[in-house]
Design a protein around this nucleic acid. Structure first.
Length: 927
DNA sequence: CCCCTGGAAAAATGC
DNA sequence: TAGCATTTTTCCAGG
């Protein structure tokens, strides 16, 4: 509760919280959100299922994507210029802005079902029939919902700051909507970040948001209380058993279990339930397009919304969740900030399903989210009201899942002091475990360089993923605001698209430097998040996060330049932190193929028995070469390990070859993959990057940042490579992707993260790119930065519109980062891109298919997969190249492109491949 | 009294 | 399906 201020009540629309007290006194809360308002939105439930099916479909269906968008950044996009929105509006989208829900997935039902239980609206019929507990939705899935399995994270958890509870942020696009209210305007860097809508836009956005807020505010209050409770409790109670089951992806459990109770825990902290990810997810699952689309859509919606909140309803997805806790005993619905309606208010209480529905609609309508299916809860979180002048969110900022560069022009956002590699996150049921600390003591420090204005800015902080996929808000973790005597930095929480965002002032008098001693990390229960409608990521073993910092710098031209930088990965699980070896640093990033040099690894949990395995992976992820390096056991210390670089299998390489290595303490105790580059025997060191594709990864360096910060080494390597735009371009992309793959901790290797959600290397090559553009850019290529509002916005916009939009986006992002290359390359791949390249389609498909979880990620993954697939079919390009080079060192093949992902999940791969094949067959033809 | 933590037991899941 | 191994989540207790 610390920080928060009040969590306030913000109940967001969907949430319904219940609380009942346990003996213990703790009240348990259940929050239900229905986020979804619309039946239309099927989101997720389907996801899982979708993915598969989708694939095939995907391509074709843009629609789907549209829907999803919810998450997205709609905010940004949304706000963005209205104009933009126009552009983007996907066909699907309804006039209102609401997406056309076409989404194929029926799954929706499930949600509905869920909702029902919850009260939700959806199916009246159903609900009626069913009391609460169980209704089974038509679909199996349906059941779940009720259960609440989902709890919304949004719930507030008392614990942390209010904000936390509020969680529902919508990080992505949406957020803006909500958040705005809080923030103070002036400062606002927000204005329009990337997107930056013009002032006007912004303003609009603002207004909207404001409006919404107002609306919301009122509504919330009341309604909830009573009704909900009853409902909720009953329902839930019945079902639940002790814990909510966690579904890993929706696990097998049927709803029942889940429903069970999720949690009564009162978790103090609010969880952002809404899965931060949601955004991602939603989007994601839609497919690539979605992503864009979603954002775009969102944006559009937002625009629309402003005016017409109501309309939205249609589109809005429905989903209910229960949140667990809210502090308040009363169960209120939480409305979104935006305006929920009065109606909304009441709903809580009783809940006739219908009512709920209406509520939802209403509420949803306001926000973009509505559109998004996923979003559901968005509002749950209470919004903090913080006031910090500094922050006020502007409507148009880029969605949290967009990739942004860390530097642009004279500006550079840099993490001067990295956080410790381990930080045990706290559950809602626990008290805070304090702020994230720096490894050397103290706290992380972030500074914006190159900013000479006198106007303070706002630094945003949210918890992002640390897997190989594109950086995006982490669905299972939320930033937790820490306040107290020991905290010197003021902060304010807001929720964007289900993602809690901490806003910290960056003051000129402090040299635009901020000590991050106010940020803790909240862990949301896997079961709660996985049940979310659009969530595709799996929580199990997905315990690494990164602190993601963003700053939005107003430009003279009215635009806003948005920069983003992500910290090194932070292991958040107690067990993992205690047992898994972790490499924080390596004394050498590259060495001639002859090997023999001693390399010192610094990190944690090294044992005398620790083994260091060097691995060369083929694009498809399989290991081409594995070699156990010799370690000096006598020199081994818990925090350092000395290994002798083994000779590379091919002593004749002509260009650098990037490989990976990891530390293994036993069967399932492996570190993330680290990167290492073998240099041609005679070559001095240097990295330039020659090889193109092959090494692309390296080249991409910059890109990576965003992606996998983890391996510093990598970075360094990468860094080595000049980020030439040009060079980066294609190669970069691909490389990046590859890298990602590579860098990524290895899915395989470190199964944990990877396995689960992360997908292996999903680098989404091209298609992804577009996405990437969004996301990737983040790390990588700073260049761009500016996200011109319009442009940026667009990106977010739904994919569908996608192509067009994407390109722009891509171009910018990418371009900025790697201008040429990307564009060219990307385009091809990217859905948007005209290029027929196989990839593209696949991309779409992929995106759709896989889990939404992280759409991006998926996409990425998919892409890679695709590539692979493609490669087989289409070409030898990457594969050959890779093989050759890697294997033989032979001259690299000229081609480029595709790089892949190494390790995709095979599952995915298979699926993807099939899809791709199908597509390819067609695509190939084109090409 | 509250916040942080470190440890662990208990509960879930995965194999 | 039973049983064991892993992970996750909830509890406890001390500073």
């Amino acid at each position: 509760m610390t920080g928060v201020g009040a969590e306030q009540e913000f109940d967001f629309d969907f949430l319904f919280e219940f609380k009942h007290s346990d003996e213990g006194g703790r009240g348990e809360h259940y929050n239900y959100t229905s986020s979804n308002v619309n039946a239309g939105l099927p989101l997720n439930v389907a996801h899982s299922s979708l993915s598969t099916p989708c694939h095939g479909l995907q391509t074709s269906n843009p629609v789907i994507s549209v829907v999803p968008s919810t998450n997205h950044p709609s905010g940004y996009g949304g706000h963005m210029d209205s104009g933009a929105s126009e552009y983007y509006l996907p066909p699907n989208i309804r006039p209102n802005g609401a997406p056309a829900l076409e989404s194929p997935r029926i799954e929706i039902t499930s949600y509905m079902g869920l909702h029902h239980n919850n009260n939700q609206f959806f199916h009246d019929e159903v609900e009626e029939a069913i009391p609460n507990a169980k209704r089974s939705p038509s679909t199996a899935t349906l059941n779940l919902p009720n259960i609440e399995a989902y709890r919304d994270p949004s719930c507030l958890s008392p614990a942390s700051s209010l904000s936390s509870r509020s969680c529902n942020s919508e990080a992505s696009s949406y957020e803006s909507n909500y958040s705005y209210p809080y923030t103070s305007p002036q400062t606002s860097p927000w204005q329009s970040p990337c997107v930056s809508p013009k002032t006007t836009d912004t303003e609009e956005g603002y207004q909207r948001s404001m409006v919404a807020c107002t609306l919301l505010s009122s509504p919330r209050h009341s309604p909830s209380t009573s009704p909900r409770t009853s409902i909720t409790e009953e329902n839930w109670l019945g079902a639940r058993s002790s814990r909510p089951p966690s579904p890993c992806n929706k696990r097998k459990y049927s709803l029942n279990d889940r429903q069970t109770s999720y949690s009564p825990h009162h978790s103090p902290t609010p969880s952002p339930q809404n899965s931060p990810r949601v955004s991602v997810t939603d989007e994601t699952w839609l497919g690539n397009t979605n992503q864009y689309t979603s954002s775009a859509i969102v944006a559009a919606i937002n625009a629309l919304t402003t005016d017409s909140t109501i309309d939205m309803n249609d589109g809005i997805p429905i989903k209910s969740r229960k949140t667990a806790i809210d502090h308040t005993p009363s169960m209120t619905l939480k409305t979104e900030p935006a305006g929920e309606d009065h109606r909304t208010i009441s709903p809580t209480a009783d809940l006739s399903p219908e009512d709920f529905s209406s509520f939802q609609h209403i509420r949803k309508g306001n926000f973009c989210e509505q559109y998004l299916s996923v979003p559901q809860h968005p509002y749950q979180w209470a919004k903090p009201k913080s006031l910090s002048p500094t922050s006020y969110m502007s409507p148009s900022l880029p969605a949290l899942d967009w990739q942004l560069p860390s530097h642009s022009g004279p500006y550079e956002l840099r993490i001067e002091v990295q956080p410790k590699s381990h930080h045990r996150a706290h559950y809602e049921t626990e008290g805070s475990r304090g702020a994230v600390k720096a490894s050397a003591g103290g706290h992380p420090i972030v500074q914006l360089h190159g900013y000479l204005e006198s106007e303070p800015l706002t630094l945003q902080l949210f918890i992002g993923t640390a897997d190989d996929r594109l950086l995006r808000p982490h669905a299972f973790y939320q930033v937790h605001r820490i306040t107290g005597k020991t905290v010197s930095t003021t902060s304010h929480e807001t929720i964007l698209s289900n993602t809690k965002v901490l806003e910290i002032p960056l003051l000129p008098e402090n040299n635009m430097r901020a000590i991050i001693d106010c940020a803790g990390i909240l862990k949301l229960r896997n079961s709660d998040i996985e049940l979310r409608k659009g969530e595709t990521d799996i929580g199990r073993k997905n315990t690494r996060v990164r602190l993601v910092f963003r700053v939005h710098i107003p430009q003279a031209n009215g635009r806003t330049l948005s920069l983003q930088v992500a910290s090194n990965p932070i292991e958040c699980s107690q067990r993992s932190a205690q047992e898994l070896p972790l490499v924080e640093k390596q004394s050498t990033d590259s060495f001639p193929v002859t090997g023999g040099k001693k390399m010192i690894l610094t990190g944690h949990n090294f044992l005398q028995d620790s083994k260091v395995i060097f691995v060369e992976k083929a694009p498809d992820g399989h290991h081409v070469w594995e070699m156990e390096a010799k370690t000096d056991k006598e020199m081994c210390k818990p925090n350092s390990l000395v290994v002798e670089i083994p000779p590379f299998r091919n002593q004749r390489i002509t260009s650098p070859v990037q490989v990976n290595f990891y530390v293994c303490n036993g069967k399932r105790k492996r570190s993330q993959y680290q990167f290492f580059t073998y240099l041609p025997a005679n070559v001095p060191i240097i990295k330039t990057e020659p090889t193109d594709d092959y090494e692309p990864a390296q080249t991409c360096g910059p890109m990576n940042q965003g992606l996998s910060p983890l391996s510093k080494p990598y970075y360094s390597q990468q860094i080595m490579m000049p980020p030439d735009p040009g060079s980066c371009l294609v190669a970069g992309f691909s490389s990046c992707q590859q890298r990602n793959a590579v860098m990524s901790p290895s899915p395989n290797a470190s199964p944990k993260l990877h396995d689960l959600s992360s997908s292996p290397y999903k680098c989404i090559p091209n298609p992804g790119h577009s996405h990437l553009g969004l996301q990737q850019p983040a790390g990588g290529v700073p260049t761009i930065q500016e996200v011109p509002r319009s442009i940026v916005v667009h990106p977010s916009s739904p994919e569908q519109s996608s192509h067009i939009m994407l390109q722009p986006q891509v171009s910018q992002h990418l371009s900025s980062s790697c201008p040429l290359g990307y564009q060219q390359t990307l385009y091809p791949n990217s859905p948007s891109s005209p290029v027929p390249s196989v990839t593209q389609e696949p991309t779409y498909l992929q995106s759709c298919s896989p889990t939404h979880s992280s759409i991006m990620g998926q996409q990425q993954q998919q892409l890679p997969k695709v590539h692979r697939n493609e490669s087989p079919t289409t070409q030898p390009l990457s594969l050959p190249e890779l093989h050759e080079e890697s294997n033989h060192n032979l001259a690299p093949i000229p081609v480029t492109i595709k790089r892949e992902p190494e390790e995709l999940d095979q599952m995915y791969l298979d699926d993807v491949n099939e899809i791709i094949r199908n597509d390819l067959s067609s695509t190939n033809v084109h090409s």
